[in-house]
Amino acid sequence: MCALEITQLRRVYRRRGGEESEALRGIDLEVTRGEVHGLLGPNGAGKTTLCKIISTVLLPTSGTVRVLGHDVVTDSARVKESLGIVFGGDKGAYDRLTARQNLAFWAGAYGLTGARRRRRVDELLERVGLKGRAEERVGSFSRGMKQRLHLARGLVRDPGVLILDEPTVGMDPVAAHDFRALVGELRGNGTTILMTTHDMAEAAALSDRVSLIDQGRLVLTESPDTVGRLVSSYERVDAGNVPDPLRERLAAMPGVVSVRRVGRAVTRVETDDPDATLAVLRELVEAGIGDVSRSTPDLEEVYLHLVGRRGMAVDG
């Protein structure tokens, strides 16, 4: 059975003044039980909106979402019971309460009481490495420590499905490493995880499959390996002092994705197949250009290819 079943999901936000913006435009996604699914996408792509709809914080405008078979609209009570959520950022904890009190509060909210609750809270504090700071007020915590607390909070109920919205924001490398270990452990226990991130490497390392979301649409859903292959099929050639007529010729060659200037004298040619790369190299050498190097782009650049080169521009 599917842990998450999302069909034709749309969500429209109504801004002040009646203006509408469509944050999700027909998302279809299935996540099987025990899968760790990475959700990647630029700012404003709709990741948080999707997470909020799954966790019953927002209603879909149309389409359906089922969590372990329960509809988020008609059966939200069941969904709430089987879901753990971690929203990134340093808000969302009671600053005046200690870490232990925070966790005890949420454990209570999810129906744990008495000795069971105490045990669970101890266990979680240990697990996220906050045991030594358990009696300190959360207000004095660093961002990374709050993030650990959020993570523990998401696990109070030993959820069947865990939604993590940018869970490693603000964590130091050690904490991020521990976090990965924890995700691995949870996967071992059969927890289904949907995790959003901006970090391609993190997504690739942790996920069974990755989805790319852009402007409210799923651009692709693949295993990290396939994405990796996609990455290796992109190649690039950097060359110095390429005259304009040659640049134009290169741009017209089959398999060449883009030709653009990076830096003052360097031209970067990107191709999506190795044969094209060879042809480009031959052309450059024949034109007498000696300053040539070849490399493969990293995950990030492929990601940019897929979502288009909008750079830092965020759509409205």
């Binding site: 709430k80 019971e81 929203f87 969302g92 009671y94 600053d95 909210a109 999810y110 129906g111 909070r153």
Partner: peptide
Amino acid sequence: HQGTLGLLAASPI
């Protein structure tokens, strides 16, 4: 101000 309303809304509280 604490940013906990969303979490409350998602919980069975």
